[in-house]
Design a protein around this nucleic acid. Structure first.
Lengths: 266, 266
DNA sequence: ATTTAATGTGTCAGGTTGACACAATAAGAA
DNA sequence: TTCTTATTGTGTCAACCTGACACATTAAAT
């Protein structure tokens, strides 16, 4: 919820009044591009610190519903693969705690026409238990939107992460570990790749996630044997050799196989 | 925290004032006896409804610490295997919601010397997000202790569960499913069996958890090959045949193997 | 010595894995 | 048309695991 007008500020304030105090949601939104895993991060206004996209739970909202809403607010995307993975409850989880940070927050709040800035400040300074969700999205479909506390919203490579606030890098780690152990039961390919892809794309995605290389022949054989791929017309690459086939998933069959696990024991 | 005296009541009231509102913990405490999985349940005072042992998080307490404390309050056991598995945030999670239930609660509260019974009532009637933990314990080591809201604390077989409050049967289901999928990475044998056990005990435990029978020869071969068992003197059974060996775990080796998973793919 | 259950081991068919090899294919260049 | 090159489909093989079954050995109590 970016605040660009007085209306937005009042809307945000009303939102805080309608929300459960002391509990938040943080989303680890993962995408895949250029043979790399990326995560969507927000940059804190006036600081060189980044955070996971997060938000609060409305009093009339289920936890999952809130996570879906927050994801949509940051990415513009609905109906995305989203799953809860862990709840973090360290006693010291306050996003704003040092005197200088409190001053910075209060200062920032003054720049906006809040009706009760002190109340907003107190709310944001509280200890929060946060529930982590992770999402798998097609990178190119996302339109990143910063929120009230943030000045930028960007994809960052997992290989070169900036400094994160609080325990957010721990949350991120835990999400990645969770994805890795659950690999065979997550719609990795379907969620992270664009609609059409080559067999190499698919293999490379698995190699990045598993952090090891796989034998091409065996990978191909096994993927085709699953019977979840549709082959399409080749796309000409303009290069002097045979162009790779393009595939897409047969979604019903994909979901059917997913129940029993896709990916073997590699 | 059973309330047997005025002191206990005031202690409980002070506890509620020192605790995060709107967030609770529920524990699925699992034990194994007579070739059956059992779960520790509490019976609501004045009702034929049961609940999972639960509690609240102190403002100065980590989530995990609170779970450990609650587990200890109900079982008398410390240093037990305990792990978070999921957080439940349905919008309608109120343990006391219908008019008759509210009346029953207020009535019960009046029987105790609370300083601010209305406040206590309001606290308990709120919507709660709850984080589920599961524990694996040696059944015979536990001394079940009912809490303030409950009249009994008992082991119940998973095969014959009584009616549970709220979404507690859903929470229980989710815990069991989690245990089953994580089987190879959990200290099943070490936590659930008593110190010494026979190979049959161990096999039976796995059969119950996996819900299918296993081949004795293969099971034995594989377990012994792991090199995590110590064999002891046989215990004479008084029956007219060879008595089974007793085993215990070589704990350091057990934990070492556990990292890579104990249990193969069965 | 006999009975009985517990225990250790062998085997076999079927399946998977990882590693490597090789021939067929097709797009563009010469 | 022929050549170059990367893609693609398949084959093989040794190593290993699985499930199912078999069988001989061991030892406690009678």
């Amino acid at each position: 919820m970016a605040l660009r007008s007085e209306d937005h500020v009042h809307q945000f304030e009303a939102h805080l009044n309608d929300v459960i105090p002391g509990h938040s949601i943080d989303c680890v939104i993962l995408g895949y591009h250029d043979n790399e895993l990326k995560v969507l991060l927000l940059r804190r206004k006036g600081q060189d610190l980044w955070s996971l996209p997060g938000g609060f739970i409305r009093k009339s909202e289920d936890l999952d519903t809130a996570a879906t809403r927050i994801l949509e607010e940051r990415t513009g995307l609905g109906s995305i693969f989203l799953q809860q993975f862990y709840t973090f409850g360290g006693q010291d989880r306050r996003s704003v705690s040092s005197k200088s940070e409190i001053a910075m927050l209060n200062n920032m709040l003054k720049q906006y026409p809040f009706k009760e800035p002190d109340k907003v400040s107190a709310f944001l300074r509280d200890r929060f238990i946060t529930t982590g969700y992770f999402a798998l999205v097609q990178l190119n479909k996302v339109s990143p939107q910063p929120d009230f506390m943030s000045s930028q919203c960007e994809w960052k490579s997992l290989k070169a992460l900036p400094e994160l606030i609080l325990d957010h890098s721990h949350i991120l780690q835990k999400a990645i570990a969770h994805v890795q152990t659950q690999l065979n039961y997550l719609p990795i390919g379907l969620s992270l790749l664009s609609k059409k892809f080559t067999m190499q794309d698919l293999q490379n995605l698995y190699e990045v996630l598993l952090n090891r290389s796989l034998d091409r022949g065996n990978f191909q054989r096994k993927m085709l044997a699953l019977n979840i791929l549709k082959r399409h017309e080749k796309q000409l690459t303009g290069k002097a050799h045979k162009a790779p086939y393009l595939y897409s998933f047969d979604v019903p069959r994909y979901n059917e196989k997913l129940k029993k696990g896709i990916g073997f024991s590699f």
